[in-house]
Simulated scan of single mutants.
Amino acid sequence: MGWLEFVAAYAVFFASHSLPVRPSVRPWLEARLGSSGFTLAYSALSLVVLAWLIGAAGRAPHLAVWDWAPWQVHVPLTVMWPVCLILALSIARPNPFSFGGASNDRFDPTRPGIVRWSRHPLLLALALWAAAHIVPNGDLAHVILFGTFAAFALLGGRLVDRRKRREMGPEWQRMRNRVADAPRLPASLSDGTLLRLAAGVALYGTLLWAHPFLFGVSPLP
């Protein structure tokens, strides 16, 4: 199917990410699935469509934008370490500034965790993932794929900030100031944080192992 499948996967990807969160659609879905059910269903759908999109990019006609070199594989190998740690430290944690936060009413701006480093850690992880993977994938389809994700992540933070400021009103700036005054690193790591860091390391190892099965390419040199 070549480019046709790639274009179709792109269209479905953006539709699946934009339609369920529209103000006229999301409340209807949450009323039937519940808040947690909606988050799980939305996340599962996003992963399935993302896997299809990546696969479609691999099946698109190969048009080289730059030549491959052995050193390029070390870029994603290195960058995926912090990506996995960021994901482990941010998923299902309170974060009223961004999407995907859980139990935001329990957010403590004096102990913001990963939010002290980034208001949008999931978007940061997405940007790092995409930028790192574009280096060893210099064909046109993958340059479009990963370049779009990187741009989406960088611009998405501004869009989320705008929406959250409108929703939270003056509280957005007050809470942001309190987060900025918090230490970047806690005096000690809680058991929960240590478990999350361990989960991040495990995720990295799992991705190394599963990458050939999921995407047909080994990430190792």
Rank of each mutant, 00 (worst) to 15 (best):
V65H: 14
R162K: 13
L154Y: 07
F213A: 13
L203T: 14
S36N: 14
R162A: 14
H142P: 01
W209G: 00
S218I: 04
A141Q: 00
G100M: 01
H17N: 04
S118I: 14
L29Y: 04
V73L: 10
T193L: 05
T78F: 06
P96C: 02
L126E: 04
V135G: 01
P61G: 07
A182K: 09
E167Y: 01
S35V: 15
A9G: 07
H142L: 00
A8M: 14
H133N: 13
P61I: 06
S103N: 10
W129M: 06
H133D: 04
H142N: 09
E30N: 09
W81F: 10
L19A: 11
S43F: 12
V83A: 02
P212D: 00
R93V: 00
L85K: 00
A131K: 00
S43H: 13
C84H: 03
A88H: 07
R165G: 05
P219E: 10
R165D: 05
L40S: 11
V49N: 09
P109S: 12
L29H: 05
P186Y: 03
S36G: 09
G192L: 07
G34R: 13
V160I: 15
V21E: 10
W3H: 06
H142E: 01
T110I: 03
R174D: 10
A141L: 00
A198F: 11
A60G: 11
L4G: 01
P219S: 11
E171Q: 08
V79W: 02
W209R: 01
W117V: 07
F13T: 12
F97S: 02
L154D: 13
R158P: 00
V65D: 08
F107E: 13
G169M: 04
Y10V: 07
A182H: 09
R59D: 15
A88W: 04
V135F: 04
D105C: 03
P76M: 05
S46M: 09
Y204R: 05
D67R: 13
Y10K: 03
W3V: 06
C84G: 00
G157K: 07
V179E: 02
P136Q: 02
H120S: 12
S18Y: 08
R22S: 12
F152Q: 09
L87E: 04
W71F: 11
L77T: 03
L155C: 10
V217D: 13
M168N: 01
W172F: 15
E30P: 08
R174M: 05
V83E: 00
S218F: 03
P27K: 08
A88F: 00
V48A: 12
A153L: 03
W172G: 02
A127K: 02
S118W: 12
S103M: 13
L194Q: 11
L63W: 15
S190F: 04
A9Y: 02
A8E: 03
A31Q: 05
E5S: 05
R178Q: 15
A88P: 03
L29C: 04
H74A: 08
H142W: 01
W209M: 02
R93K: 11
F213H: 09
L214C: 14
S118D: 13
A182D: 07
L77S: 03
